[in-house]
Computed example of a mutant assay.
Amino acid sequence: MTAPKQIKLTLIRSLAKRLPKHKACVHGLGLKRMHQTVTVTATPENMGMVNKVSYMLRIEEV
């Protein structure tokens, strides 16, 4: 069995003056401040949040 695919996310834009749903997606992905990087599993739930706020993130495959 293969390991689940991982993606590395970095917040590159501020959360100031963003839609509440977009802020919630960023917090749901585990990001709290600018230039913070987290690694998450590429589940459909996480990928939906990433797609919604992709304009604020740097996305890299691990």
Rank of each mutant, 00 (worst) to 15 (best):
L11K: 07
M56G: 07
K5S: 02
M49S: 10
K23A: 12
M49V: 00
M56V: 01
M1Y: 14
K32V: 05
A16K: 12
N51I: 00
R18G: 06
Y55V: 11
N51V: 01
T39H: 00
E61F: 01
V62L: 04
A3S: 11
V40N: 02
T41K: 10
K21T: 08
V26A: 11
K5H: 08
G48Y: 01
G30E: 08
M49K: 15
G28F: 14
V62W: 00
L9R: 02
R18V: 13
T37F: 03
M56N: 10
K21V: 06
M47T: 03
K8F: 01
R18S: 12
K23S: 11
S54A: 15
I7M: 04
K32I: 02
A42V: 00
K17I: 04
L57V: 08
M56H: 08
L9M: 05
P44C: 05
I12W: 13
E61A: 03
H35E: 08
I12H: 10
Y55E: 12
A42W: 01
Y55R: 07
R13A: 14
L19S: 11
R13P: 02
A24L: 11
L57G: 09
A3D: 10
I12P: 04
R18M: 14
T10A: 04
V26E: 08
V53C: 08
K52M: 14
